[in-house]
C-alpha cells in the first residue's frame, strides 16, 4: 500500500486512492509535537526573513539610518534616535535584530539555491547511473566515491581558495560539495525501484526511456530524496556560515549570519557578547528547526515505519 501511496503523493496525475497519501503524511507528521514545534519555528523564521525589509526597525545596510553614537549598545538600550535595540547594536550602531533578519535572508537564499541545484544535478546523474548501469554507472559512482572521501569543508575551502570569495562562488562551491550525496542516494533508491513491475510495465508499453526515467522512476525516488534535501539545506547553511566566518565565503557586502558572528567575535573578549551570540542563536534555531522537520519527514515517509 505504502508504495502506491508514495508514488501518488509525488505525481498528482495518478488516480487518488481512497485516502490521499498527502493527508496520511500530514496526519502522521502531526503526531510528533517536537516536529510540529520545529515546523512552526521554521515557518516563523522563514516568514521573518522574507518580510525583513518591512518588519525590521531599521534597514541595517542603509548607512543613513545608522548612527555611530549607537554603537555597541547592550540589548534593550534605547538609541540616540529613540529606537530601542532589543538585541543590542554592533560596532557601527547597527540594530542586531534587523541585521539578523537580513542575514537570515541571505543564509536561507544561499542554502536553498545551492541545495536545489545540487539536488537536480545529483538526482539526474543518480537516476541515469542506476537506469543505464554499465560504464555510465561506474564513472558516476567512482566520481561520487572520490568526492565523498573528502570532507565537505575541505572541498569548499579549496574551491574558494581558487575562485575567491563571492556570492556566486560560494553557491557554486556548495553545489559541488553536495551533488554527490544526492547522486548516491538517488542511485540507491532508483536501483531498488528499477526492478519493480511498474517499470517493466512501462517498458513493455514501449514508452521512451526519457519518459520512464523522469515520468515513472523519478517520482518514486523522490520521498527519501526530499528528506535528504531538507537536512542538506541545514548543512549547506551551516557550511556557508562557517566559510563566511572564516573570511573565505560571502563578501562583506552580503552579510550572512556567519559574517555577523565573525564581526562580533572581536567584541566577545571585551564582554560585548550580544553581537556574536544572537546571530549564532538565530543560526542554531534555523538549523535545529530544519533538522527536526527533516527527522520527522524521514519517519513519516519511510514505508517501513507504516504498519
Amino acid at each position: 500500500m505504502s508504495e502506491t501511496a508514495i508514488s501518488a503523493a509525488a505525481s498528482p496525475d495518478v488516480t487518488p486512492p481512497p485516502e490521499r497519501p498527502v493527508w496520511r503524511i500530514i496526519r502522521d507528521f502531526r503526531k510528533s509535537p517536537l516536529a510540529l514545534f520545529g515546523l512552526a519555528l521554521l515557518v516563523v523564521i522563514i516568514a521573518a526573513a522574507f518580510l525583513a525589509p518591512w518588519i525590521t526597525p531599521q534597514n541595517p545596510y542603509d548607512l543613513r539610518s545608522l548612527n555611530i553614537m549607537d554603537s555597541r549598545l547592550a540589548p534593550g538600550e534605547v538609541g540616540f534616535s529613540g529606537i530601542s535595540f532589543w538585541l543590542g547594536t554592533d560596532g557601527q550602531g547597527r540594530d542586531m535584530f534587523s541585521a539578523i533578519l537580513f542575514g537570515l535572508r541571505i543564509s536561507l537564499m544561499v542554502g536553498l539555491i545551492a541545495c536545489t541545484a545540487a539536488l537536480i544535478i545529483g538526482l539526474t546523474l543518480g537516476l541515469i547511473a542506476a537506469y543505464f548501469g554499465g560504464r555510465i554507472d561506474t564513472i558516476v559512482m567512482r566520481l561520487v566515491d572520490l568526492h565523498l572521501s573528502f570532507p565537505p569543508i575541505l572541498v569548499a575551502l579549496i574551491l574558494l581558495a581558487i575562485l575567491g570569495r563571492g556570492l556566486e562562488n560560494i553557491i557554486f562551491a556548495l553545489i559541488i560539495v553536495q551533488w554527490a550525496t544526492f547522486a548516491r542516494m538517488a542511485r540507491a533508491t532508483a536501483l531498488s525501484e528499477r526492478g519493480r513491475e511498474y517499470v517493466e510495465a512501462a517498458q513493455s508499453l514501449g514508452l521512451s526511456q526519457t519518459r520512464i526515467l523522469f515520468g515513472h522512476l523519478l517520482p518514486n525516488c523522490l520521498p527519501p530524496l526530499m528528506v535528504l534535501y531538507t537536512v542538506e539545506i541545514a548543512s549547506a547553511i551551516a557550511l556557508e556560515a562557517t566559510l563566511s566566518f572564516l573570511g573565505v565565503g560571502l563578501p562583506a557586502t552580503q552579510p550572512s549570519l556567519g559574517l555577523l558572528i565573525a564581526n562580533g567575535f572581536q567584541f566577545v573578549l571585551s564582554g560585548q557578547y550580544w553581537i556574536s551570540v544572537f546571530p549564532g542563536i538565530a543560526l542554531l534555531l534555523l538549523i535545529v528547526a530544519i533538522n527536526l522537520v527533516g527527522d520527522r519527514l524521514r519517519d513519516v515517509l519511510n514505508p517501513r515505519n507504516i504498519t
Binding site: A234, A238, A241, T242, F245, L246, G258, I261, G264, F265, V268, L269, G271, Y273, S276, V277, G280, L283, L284, I287, V288, N291
Partner: peptide
C-alpha cells in the same frame, strides 16, 4: 547529542571561549 550535531562548530567555539575563558 542532537544538539551537539546541530550547533555550528565555529559558534560553539565562540561560546566556549566566552563562557570558560572570558
Amino acid at each position: 547529542s542532537i544538539l551537539g550535531f546541530s550547533v555550528p562548530n565555529f559558534w560553539q567555539a565562540i561560546m566556549l571561549i566566552m563562557i570558560f575563558a572570558v
